[in-house]
Nucleic acid binder design. Structure first.
Lengths: 105, 105
DNA sequence: TGACTATATCAAAATATATTGATATAGTCT
DNA sequence: AGACTATATCAATATATTTTGATATAGTCA
């Protein structure tokens, strides 16, 4: 039996990072937020009104995305604008393709 | 503010399926199993011995992957062999790319 | 300063998920 | 049939995550 990855201590750290990345995205509101941000930065109130979420829940999920660096933020007056961090997304995307081979069609 | 996806009732079903797909993969043991199966079908005992998991835990995670159709199984005597269902993987992969734009490098 | 708006934080409750231990099922081989 | 191996199932427990409600912080503007 030839197995090419995932034995204990082999690629362990990258695999754990990839799992964490997937956990961050594997939540409906967070995936919607990422999807909403595809078209450019949005402030928190745009996001929670558009997605019909309680304000504090939107903040909570934004914090999780921000802590994981999938999004950046900038403050402008009272408002905080969030946007996708494409570099980090690319990084995790290539980790993911390392563990799952690419199943594109 | 122009937002191109994720409003209530728009792509709702595909988004929910994509979230479920991500949830299935966002677990260390299951991602390891998928990775292990990249090189071809394996029986359950190959998998649990290789990944150093309790047998029943491996069965449990295989069932989750199987129920979601990411893997197929065939029985040969006492052994059950699991393998990746590439068609389903491709399907969910394109859903995922629909919600996240493609961040490949 | 005071009223107002936007965002963040925190504790509690609700919900979901992973893991373990025990046991059942089902095929093989003598 | 009886002993054995491989796999699956189930209930109980442990753990993690999401959601809610209340409140804090911080900037704006009259």
């Amino acid at each position: 039996m030839k197995i090419s990855c995932c034995r204990k201590n082999e690629s362990t750290k990258e695999l754990a990072m990839t799992v964490d990345f997937l956990k961050v995205l594997a939540e409906e509101n967070r995936l919607k937020i990422m999807c909403t941000l595809r078209s450019g930065e949005k402030c928190v109130c745009d996001i929670w009104r558009f997605l019909d979420l309680p304000q504090n829940l939107a903040s909570h999920h934004l914090k999780i995305l921000k802590d994981f660096k999938l999004i950046d933020s900038r403050k402008d007056g009272l408002k905080v604008y969030y946007s996708i961090n494409s570099n980090e997304m690319s990084k995790y995307n290539s980790f993911l393709n390392h563990f799952l081979k690419s199943y594109e069609q």
